[in-house]
């Protein structure tokens, strides 16, 4: 049998050429001649990852020897330090100089975390939050426990256990943030600030009574009989007279602009007039949340 590449005459039955090691093709050898093709949807992803690689110059962190002390690299490879360092996803890998192995997990984790914040309070947000936790768990396992886990069952159990721990960790972080930040839905549009009805706004918390509010401030109201907190707008300050005339707020006889201080629909149907007591504010919202004036101490943030 003659080799098509080098022309060497091989013994019959040989599969590869004795001289050049090429595969010997016979009449009945099935050869696939159609090359694999790329699916169209993959193209933008490939372009993106290519750009990322190009920015990274295709180099690993190992290209920079001696950047980290050797003891730190060894320290990070043991189980407990690896777990502790992986509290920040990817940190253990950076120390171990193998971040390239997990950078896409870290990127995906970041994306899911951002999406979870964007869709906070919805099912989508919950799904993104869960995925972020699972990805974080996998990064932790990859950093320190991977060598001890061999089969799929062990991996699933490990991911479940580490996910639970990470959930607890996230909960602790959320609790610490909760003392300073809160969020609530707004039920009316404020065109001037490009806010639409149903938007979820985050507010910074102040100790009660510490801050005096200005007209137009958006403040969060905690309602213990509702599931969610709500954002309302401060319209009248203590001592002022608030009226609703022709669908606009009028403060001490001066009409306010409707796009900055929108009047809720239920207030537009009948004339309204009130004098605000001292230490109280007049707030505007698209639902009956509080009867009478709101004491300034109830406001929790803006």
């Amino acid at each position: 049998m003659r080799c098509s590449r080098c022309g060497f005459e091989n013994m019959p039955g040989q599969k590869r050429c004795f001289k050049c090691n090429s595969v010997l093709l016979t009449e009945d050898t099935p050869v696939t001649i159609e090359p694999p093709r790329m699916a169209g949807w993959k193209k933008p992803f490939r372009v993106f990852f290519r750009q990322v690689r190009r920015l990274n110059k295709g180099q690993t962190l190992d290209s920079y020897p001696g950047r980290l002390p050797h003891w730190l690299k060894n320290f990070s490879r043991s189980v407990l330090p690896g777990l502790l360092l992986s509290v920040i996803p990817g940190l253990a890998h950076v120390v171990q100089k193998k971040f390239r192995q997990v950078w896409y997990y870290v990127l995906a984790w970041l994306v899911f975390l951002i999406l979870a914040i964007v869709f906070y309070g919805t099912v989508r947000g919950l799904v993104c939050y869960s995925l972020a936790i699972v990805l974080h768990a996998w990064i932790v396992i990859h950093a320190s426990l991977r060598q001890y886990i061999s089969d799929l069952q062990q991996r699933i159990i490990a991911i479940a256990l580490v996910s639970l721990c990470i959930y607890g960790l996230y909960w602790l972080v959320a609790l610490s943030i909760r003392d300073h930040v809160a969020g609530g839905y707004i039920n009316f549009p404020v065109p001037y600030q490009n806010i639409e009805s149903g938007d979820y706004l985050l507010v910074r918390l102040y100790p009660p009574g510490l801050r005096l509010y200005a007209r137009g401030d958006l403040v969060l109201i905690q309602q213990y009989y509702r599931d969610h907190d709500f954002i309302v707008q401060v319209i009248g300050l203590p001592g002022e007279t608030v009226e609703v005339i022709e669908g606009r707020y009028v403060i001490n006889g001066i009409p306010l602009k409707n796009d900055i201080y929108p009047v809720p629909p239920f207030l537009q149907s009948w004339p309204f007039s009130s004098i605000i007591q001292e230490n109280k504010y007049f707030i505007s919202a698209d639902f009956h949340l509080y009867r009478g004036m709101l004491p300034s101490k109830v406001d929790i943030g803006n």
Partner: peptide, 8 residues
């Protein structure tokens, strides 16, 4: 490889 930015 070089066009796919895999330089090494």
């Amino acid at each position: 490889c070089v066009r796919d930015a895999k330089i090494d």
